[in-house]
Design a protein around this nucleic acid. Structure first.
Length: 423
RNA sequence: GGAGAAAUGGCAGAGUGGUCGAAUGCACUGGUCUUGAAAACCAGCGUACCGCAAGGUACCGGGGGUUCGAAUCCCUCUUUCUCCGCCA
């Protein structure tokens, strides 16, 4: 959430910044400024009435103690009018507050200055491409066929047990999946991230804390009976560990990682894009999360980007890095870098990681703060990224590393899989 | 799942309708003393919002209610503990 002070003080800059998302913030911001002003004035009235009431109550207490019952009762009688006013004002203030909150929740984060204006993924900037396409003296087969041929992933069985988008990994497929998880976790650990195994289900407050609610309500599985949500990413439980936290001093850099399954309803998705592992309702991911002093955010982001690049390089994948344009940047993010790997058989780029900085957008909702050098309370910055999401990595490894009679396992994974190839 | 008890400031812990934002102790910060430290003593010491300020308001697990007035009474939810049941 943007801070109300920022909207009051930098109104035009906020509106201008949000234009990069093709988001017309002016109506919301104008209303916000107006409602905020009347909120402040009503709040002032309410508080002065409350002050009078407190004063009278105090007097009544003193009178009773002194045994001046009649005077006390007289004083009681005059409170009626004030009390009625207080009740009315209170309701008005509450309505105004709800309006403000409702409006605030509608405003996405203001893009970073590096982010280019743009509407959709067409406008994303390709920053670099590393590696090159392998050549094959046969026609590469898509991963869903390979998965079937070598008995690695059973999509039909998943449909039977659960439904579409819930594949079942088996045999060497399951083992390769587990190898990737172990590899990613170990790399994160080597980079200084502490490993967590968080719950896979979160409460409503956590959903609001990281910004999934109310914006993406329909994208999470909601367990209505207990009012809990299946996590769409480990970002939610990991970041919410630090909800309502005041870090004692400005010298911190918190690095968390965790592997979790992720659940997404993906309502409305259909067609060719959802074939095989391309888009699932349940998938595995290792996430990295950072909580940083604002001065350290640039460096942290850089470090995370390099971490993800390192993983892709170690896996020998042909990849490219994109900086998302305003329109394609997620609601809560100030800036996002996407990583895509090239899939040999599908002949297209698959997104495998997304690294974002949120600046104070999440921490303002989370109430995640620290005491700065002047002993003032200040909001932390949060960042997170996938390192990495498994299914499309799996798809790319299967497709890109296929030979005519098998699949070669990347060198770095062999100590985890225990086998060098699948045939 | 059933029965009971509890939730107060960083921690411990008092307070059961009125000068309570809350005693006291510990911790913490500053000062005095000391060559330095410890001890002792003095002072300070929660958060948020509104306000240029003075100041005001709100907060005793969350929400609601009673009352002129609620940490204190009532309802409700959550969490923790004890006992019983069930169980990987």
């Amino acid at each position: 959430m943007l801070e109300i002070q920022r909207i009051r003080n930098e109104k035009e800059a906020v509106i201008e910044g949000l234009k990069k998302r093709h988001f017309d913030a002016r109506p919301i911001v104008d209303e916000l400024i107006e409602v905020d002003a009347s909120w402040r004035s009503k709040k002032g009235e309410l508080e002065s009435i409350a002050a009078q009431m407190n004063q009278i109550s105090k007097q009544i207490g003193i009178l009773f103690r002194e045994g001046k019952t009649e005077e006390a009762n007289a004083a009681k009688a005059q409170t009626g009018e004030l009390k009625a006013q207080e009740t009315t004002l209170k309701a008005e203030v509450e309505t105004l507050e709800a309006t403000i909150t409702g409006l605030m929740y509608q405003l996405p984060n203001v893009p970073n200055e590096l982010v280019k204006a743009g509407k959709s993924e067409e406008d994303n900037e390709i920053l670099e491409e590393v590696g090159s396409q392998r050549t094959y003296d046969f026609t590469p087969v898509p991963h869903w066929d390979l998965a079937d041929k070598y008995n690695l992933i059973d999509f039909e069985l998943g449909v039977k047990v659960t439904g579409a988008g819930f594949p079942i990994y088996r045999g060497k497929g399951a083992k390769l999946q587990r190898a990737l998880i172990n590899f990613f976790l170990e790399e994160a650990e080597n980079a200084g991230y502490e490993e967590f195994i968080p719950p896979h289900v979160v409460n409503e407050a956590s959903g609001y804390g990281t910004g999934q609610l109310p914006d993406k309500e329909g994208q999470m599985y909601h367990i209505t009976e207990d009012d809990l949500y299946l996590i769409p990413t480990a970002e939610v439980p990991l970041t919410n560990i630090y909800r309502d936290v005041m870090l004692p001093d400005g010298d911190f850099s918190i690095k968390l990682t965790g592997y979790t399954p992720c659940f997404r309803r993906e309502a409305g998705s259909y067609g060719k894009d959802v074939r095989g592992l391309n888009r699932l309702h349940q998938f595995d991911k290792v996430e990295i999360v950072r909580i940083e002093h604002p001065d350290n955010t640039d460096a942290a982001l850089e470090e995370m980007i390099n971490h993800v690049k390192g993983l892709l390089q170690k896996l020998g994948l042909h990849y490219r890095v994109l900086r998302l344009c305003g329109g394609d940047t997620g609601f809560a993010a100030a800036m996002t870098y996407d990583f895509e790997v090239f899939s040999a058989a599908q002949e297209k780029w698959l997104e495998v990681s997304s690294v974002s900085r949120f600046d104070t957008f999440q921490s303002s909702r989370l109430k995640l703060r620290f005491k700065n050098a002047d002993k003032k309370t200040q909001l932390c910055h949060t960042l997170n990224g996938s390192a990495l999401a498994l299914p499309r990595i799996m798809a790319a490894i299967l497709e890109n590393n296929q030979t005519e009679d098998g699949i070669e396992i990347p060198e770095v994974l062999r100590k985890y899989t225990g086998f060098d190839s699948i045939s």
